[in-house]
């Protein structure tokens, strides 16, 4: 198997568009209800935010997870073989409250859905 080289430029990009352009040569996203992103509403720890992405889109080539307001938004990309099911889960670092976006590449197009994750100072309680 031939593995793609680590996409340095995409990981160092400072915006969602430039990261996606660098990674996949495009940044046009089409919203999709065939993607479900799961992440906590409020992060227990901004340094460890569990995120999972599940999609029923056919022939997924890759899934990327982007934290919109991170300095470098691209957190990770997953290249799927034909035998992989449309599901990945990991844990990411988030610098502040932000939308987390799942980008699914299939049939040459990019589909996406997002979820707001709040990163809070904490304290207080009932």
């Amino acid at each position: 198997t031939v593995l793609a080289a680590w996409p340095k430029e995409a990981f160092e990009a400072n915006s969602v568009d430039s990261a996606l352009n660098s990674l996949m040569g495009q940044s046009q996203l089409e919203g999709s209800d065939k993607i479900e992103i799961k992440a906590p509403d409020i992060a227990e720890n901004g340094a460890v935010v569990p995120v999972s992405v599940e999609t029923s889109i056919d022939d997924v080539e890759s899934i990327s997870i982007v934290a919109e307001k991170n300095n470098t938004p691209l957190t990770s990309a997953y290249v799927m073989s034909p035998r992989a099911e449309g599901f990945v889960a990991t844990r990411i670092k988030m610098s502040e409250t932000s939308s987390v976006i799942a980008v699914v590449k299939a049939g040459g197009s990019l589909y996406s859905t997002g979820k707001e994750v709040k990163v809070t100072i904490g304290g207080c309680g009932g």
Partner: peptide, 11 residues
């Protein structure tokens, strides 16, 4: 249980 225990109280 209280869902935000590790945030509202010491994690």
């Amino acid at each position: 249980a209280f869902p935000y225990t590790p945030i509202a109280n010491p994690g």
